[in-house]
Design a protein around this nucleic acid. Structure first.
Lengths: 212, 212
DNA sequence: ATTTGTCACTAAACACTGTTACGCCCTCGT
DNA sequence: ACGAGGGCGTAACAGTGTTTAGTGACAAAT
């Protein structure tokens, strides 16, 4: 990893955080580094390679947020803390959060690079671990932690996506409250007991939220 | 609404569905219509205006899917049917589903046009109505239907987003099953009874999923 | 019947974009 | 001292959204 490549990456991160994905161009990046655009191609194969590295930095930043939560003493606090760190990261660094979930084609790729896929899987695994230890602690209903974690992930990700794109016409503090309330709803379930019982009979593998 | 404008819109829809947002250019569109690019500007203010109309068509197509579900006789069937139509639309017409949730900046806008916001709100209202009548029918726990609908919407949207972007490494049929199972988990809740009780005490407004 | 005016269109251009080919220069190893 | 190679700049290509200026046709008005 040459010195110049690191310099380019640092400038790319700064440029992306400042101007977003649409405002990110190789010529702007070159100007910020202090060279002409073609010079960048000595160190990076193309724009997509630069953005892949920026994505990697975003993953790292995100991970550093999440891993702060595992210092808490109990599974429940780790679980809740991770949720809070997730929300903090997304709201404090919206551009970094956004790049984590850009479709490959938006970045000019056909598929995400392997090392990005790996970090994405690691993140997923983090949630699975949080869910599993909560199941072991008797806080979450037993079941496949992978699936339960996915349900949680999808819900949190979906809420953030809707907020970030303006589909929810509310401010940040209201959204924080809404995020928490919606999470509670997801954890407690939204069905009446009668309906939950009926569903539990039909989907035997599903967590029941019942038992008398 | 002139004849030529309709012709341009039809070509734009075709071009978008074929080549996606990245492959969509004013020059390609002009070629498909049979004119040169600047001619388009007599009928549309710019690319963003064309895309806004394409978005409107996508909303209409989506609505036509959703509204098929309200023919069912019971609230529960309408609710479940709407969920199925939602999934059908997203999987059968991924490009049309995608444009519904593109960020304004991706389309070169600062904010979504008012008529798009309106259709988005109408869609949200559709879900609120489904939730409300399920609450009235005693299938879903009483509460603010707006909030419960949002929880459901976020979950479904998040799952689809994750699937569409390849974060879930599975095929379509597996995803359909996963989508349904995750929905059941959301409706029944993922917490144990003890934890759900505790949460319900702290968040008095939240649905309880308890009561003996 | 001639003029006027409006409307849709084309050609050319501007300011961008990502990327490549070519040539220059400087440094490093021999 | 001298070749080799790496880093860089210039110019260029193909593409983008958009604007300006000019052309032609056709309808309305005098």
């Amino acid at each position: 990893m040459s010195y110049q490549r690191e310099k380019i990456l640092a400038a790319a991160v700064e440029l992306y955080l400042q101007d977003g994905l649409d405002g990110f161009s190789m010529r702007k990046l070159a100007k910020q580094v202090g060279v002409t655009a073609p010079a960048l191609y000595r160190h990076y194969a193309g724009k997509e390679a630069v953005l892949a590295d920026v994505m990697r930095e975003a993953h790292r930043a995100f991970m550093s947020y999440l891993y702060r939560a595992i210092e808490a003493p109990t599974p429940r606090e780790r679980f809740q803390g991770a949720g809070e760190r997730y929300l903090d990261f997304a709201l404090e660094h919206p551009r970094w959060h956004a790049i984590l979930y850009f479709a490959p084609e938006q970045l000019g790729m056909v598929e995400l690079p392997a090392h990005i896929e790996a970090m994405s899987s690691a993140r997923h695994q983090f949630w699975i671990d949080r869910v599993r230890e909560c199941m072991d602690a008797g806080i979450l209903e037993d079941g496949d932690p992978t699936q339960t974690a996915l349900t949680l992930w999808a819900h949190a990700h979906g809420l953030l996506q809707l907020y970030r794109q303006g589909h929810l016409q509310i401010g940040e503090s209201e959204f924080r409250a809404l995020f928490e309330e919606s999470g509670v709803r997801l954890i407690c379930g939204i069905a009446t007991d009668a309906f939950a019982h009926e569903l539990a009979e039909r989907y035997v593998d599903a967590p029941t939220a019942t038992e008398a």
